[in-house]
Structures are given as C-alpha cells and as structure tokens.
Amino acid sequence: MAERSKPKVAVWKFASCDGCQLSLLDCEDELLAVAEEIQIANFPEASREVIEGPYDVSLVEGSVTTPHDRERIQMVRKSSKVLITIGACATAGGIQALRNFKDVKDFINTVYANPEFIDTLDQSTPIADHVKVDFELRGCPINKMQLVEVINAFLNSRKPNTPPHSTCIDCKLEGNVCVMVAQGTPCLGPVTHTGCGALCPTYNRGCYGCFGPKETPNTNSLSSWLKQSGANDDQMMRAFRGFNAWSEPFRKESESHD
C-alpha cells in the first residue's frame, strides 16, 4: 500500500493511577507494530522526548479534579485533531468521583496537615464535561487489546469494534455459565458495558461494572432482583458506587439506595 504518514500521538495524564496509559506499554507483541505506525509525540510514561503539537490523536487518561487541570484540558483539546479518552476516570470521573457524593473539604481537613495548600475542585468530572470528546474507551483499566483496536481502526479509517452491549453477551460467547443464575453471585454484567472479555465471570466472580453502564442499562430492575435475593440497600449502593460511580445511570441507582 502507499506509504502513509505516521500520525503524531500524544498521551495525557489527568487525575488517574496511570494504569490505562501503561496498558499501551503493556501491549508487548503489538507494541512494536504500533510504534512502527505512529509517532509518539508526548508520552511521559514512556519517553522524556516531547514533540510539540498539534497532534493527530490525543489519548487522555484521568479526570478533571483541579483548577489547573480544568485549564490544561482546554489546551489539550486545542492542540488535538482527535481526542480519545481512555478509562473510567476520563470517561466517568473514576473512583475519585466518590468525592462528588460528599463534601471534599471534609476529606481535605481530615487527610492533610496543611489543608490550605490544597487547591482542588469539589467534584471529579469526566473529560467530556469540559471539552468535546471524539471517542471514549471504557474500562478500569482499559483492555489493552481494545486500545490497540481503537488505534488500529483510526490508522485504517474504520470503525473500532468496541460494542456497547452487555457483558452478558461476551460471557455467552465464551460459553461461561452465568454466575448469577447458577450460583446466586450478584453480578453487574447485565447492566455493564462489555469490553473486558467478561473477565470476572470467567473466573467465577460477579462483574464489578468496571466498564460502566452499557447502552440502555436497566439498573433498577437488576437491583430489585438482587434485593429480592437478599441484598440490602447498602450493598446495592456500594455495588453501583465503584469506578464508574459518577456515570449517570450508576449514580442515580446508587443514590436510590443511599
């Protein structure tokens, strides 16, 4: 095929644990092929070399939690043709969005000896609350193969195969036995966006909802059923208040049990 130019790719970190961007380095077999086809222009986890923007693609990890980051994301957007958010922090606010349900000042006063040095926002919010996002990749952490798929699809001008349906479909494609029906294990699979390859149910555990709500999630019906099966409100509140607690369907569901 005709030689195509190498797109400039930048990786940005906001409030996050770095796990998602490390997925890129974790690609092992695929990493060399990816590195052949793209120019890593800014990726502090991998290299100190920084090439100036604008960038063809920006992969953004993390949520916005400080006034500084609120400004910085605007700069990232301005210097990026395509902005892709990776992971639950960037797409839903992450586990740190648990602050959104409480008064963050209480935490600061409890944790820090000199709270006056802390300059933080009341809420942890997803990138899409601040700038236009072109594509969101779910997961806590993201599935590295899905990340390769998204880069691959971008390079080849096609749609990425990252369907928004339930995790149950992937369980069934794998031939897994439903842990909820056959063992009575509470599982968020029926309301959770697929992408992990049904990792937990494959190992006989219920789904924790790391990939956030699926398309048209019916969280209310699932929690009603789980409550009939013995779960209490506190358990249901906690089940939906995980890495994607601030995504609207999970937030509303957890609040209804609070």
Binding site: S166, C168, T216, S221
Partner: peptide
C-alpha cells in the same frame, strides 16, 4: 420492559 435488562441472555441461550 420495566423488568427486562436488554442483556440478551435469552437470545444467547
């Protein structure tokens, strides 16, 4: 529809 999770388990099995 209030109960259905649209999870697709019925069609898969």
């Amino acid at each position: 529809a209030e109960r259905c999770l649209s999870c697709a388990n019925c069609t898969m099995v």
